[in-house]
Design a binder for these strands. Structure first.
Length: 260
DNA sequence: ATGCCTAAGCCCCTTAGA
């Protein structure tokens, strides 16, 4: 089964690109981030016509996450990350879908960017990472095949960016961001792309500015984390890089993993 | 030190992104 994640950067303007990607890549489950639209304006009918049921957590203007599954809509398990009743951002959605007769639990996450740092936005990011770790610990305890995917806004190691120097002061690769991500991995999650590409040099994001795409100035911030029960079944994983070069592209490329 | 681009709402400038 194929599970994919795609930060679409605005589902309204990106819809033709996303439908094209679903038709060509044919994921069984697709998690989307940065919908940038409210619940009422999510294009549910367009996805249904494309053969995908959906659950979503929208927000006007920014944020917003969704889980699509081929066929019927997945069952929503949780909307919003626990641990802070004052957090109003739509950044976390958990769902369960049957694929090839077996249930898989998936979470679609859009982690706070955290810039500028230091500051309140960075504090929110670090607190969100700790809340995420707590929730993912509960998911590990279920001992079920579980996949947590999305835009983590963390460059895990120096090998995951085109330039350590250019990004040195960015919230995406501060030690506090990296340490929090590493602690999540140490708890038992497998970073699919990193496991299959230990040499690094794999990017999932290229800035719109300064010719970053043309110069291949990217970094890896969209991740697929597999529970042990899912990691045991990993066959392959990759980045659908060519979508970044198409007309009206998102600044992120889709990332996917194939499980037995 | 700043803008480089893009999307969307507060809609022709500002906010947010990364």
């Amino acid at each position: 089964m194929k599970i994919a994640t795609f930060n679409v950067n605005g589902i309204t303007s990106r819809l033709p690109r996303v439908l094209e990607w679903l038709a060509e890549s044919k994921p069984d489950v697709a998690c989307l981030q940065e919908l940038k639209t409210s619940d009422a304006t999510f294009p549910e009918a367009a996805f249904r016509d494309a053969g995908y049921g959906a659950v979503w957590h929208g927000q006007k203007g920014f944020n917003g996450v969704a889980v699509l599954a081929r066929g019927d809509a997945p069952a929503e398990l949780r909307r919003g990350l626990p641990g802070d009743p004052d957090d109003t951002h739509s950044r976390y959605l958990e769902a369960r879908a049957p694929v090839a007769g077996r249930d898989i639990t998936v979470a679609s996450i859009y982690l706070p960017n955290g810039n500028p740092q230091p500051g309140p936005k960075f504090d929110y990011k670090i607190a969100w990472l700790e809340r995420l770790r707590a929730r993912l610990g509960e998911l590990l305890e279920t001992e079920q095949p579980t996949v947590v995917v999305g835009d983590f806004n963390v460059i895990p190691e120096d090998k995951d960016t085109f330039s350590v120097r250019a990004m040195a002061n960015d919230a995406l690769m501060q030690p506090a961001s990296r340490d929090a991500y590493a602690r999540i991995l140490h708890d038992g999650w497998t970073d699919a792309i990193d496991t299959l590409n230990p040499q690094g040099g794999v990017w999932t994001f290229w800035d719109y500015q300064a010719g970053a795409w043309q110069r291949d100035h990217g970094f890896r911030i969209d991740h697929l984390l597999l529970s042990p029960q899912a990691a045991d079944r990993m066959i392959s994983a990759g980045v659908d890089k060519e979508y970044r070069g198409r007309e009206k592209a998102s600044d992120h490329a889709p990332v996917w993993v194939e499980l037995a």
